[in-house]
Amino acid sequence: MKQSVIFLEDVTLHFPKLKSLMSIFSDLVKREKSQFTALRSINLEVRSGEVFGLIGKNGSGKSTILRVISGIYPPDEGTCKVAGNISLLAGIGTGFSAHQTGIENALLYGSILGHNEKEMTAKLPEILEFSELGDFINEPIRTYSAGMKARLGLAVASAIRPDILLIDEVLGVGDPQFREKSKARILDLVAETGTVVIVSHSFGLMKDICDRVGVVHNGELVMVGSPEEAISTYYEITE
């Protein structure tokens, strides 16, 4: 039996609503809390070596689940436990600084993703090669096109080798050739990494790579099953 590496038990997450001075008083009178419930008692176990997909409409809470697992938002109720180190790939190129060179940004982004100096110096040649930036790597990245930035970001992000990889819609950047290359790279990464949780709207991809898929609707995990079952459930719910 495969061991589980991600456990979510009754995870509920609220987002507080910002109150104005007036509404603070009215809330005191009415004795109610103004908040938005993003996740409602989510129960989920992901086993080691499994590729787990999450599908759902925009705003259903898929990304929020990944953020709870990665520690960005602690759950308000319930617990979230993980075994092993986690890396969340979301918004490739977070924290890029327009005025620094490609290399400096590669190091910066790498450290944001949790690498130490030794790891980054070891991985730098591989990153530079994959990014295909040539001499541009020594130019400030404000001179880069959007595709070049994305290439550099993906090159750094895909150099990580975590135990658990969380991917939030990072496919589909750059020109068609690079898109193919980046898809192949992510698939390699998925194959190499032990456990993957992936959020995506491309159902074709989900069918290809996922072992199990969960459907998220209005902050609830409606069902978990094979990709085909999940996708048909998704269409039933959203129709």
């Binding site: 589980s4 617990t79 979230c80 436990k81």
Partner: peptide, 11 residues
């Protein structure tokens, strides 16, 4: 022995 790595509660 189910886990090879320690299970840690997030947060």
């Amino acid at each position: 022995p189910l886990y090879d790595t320690n299970v840690v509660e997030v947060g």
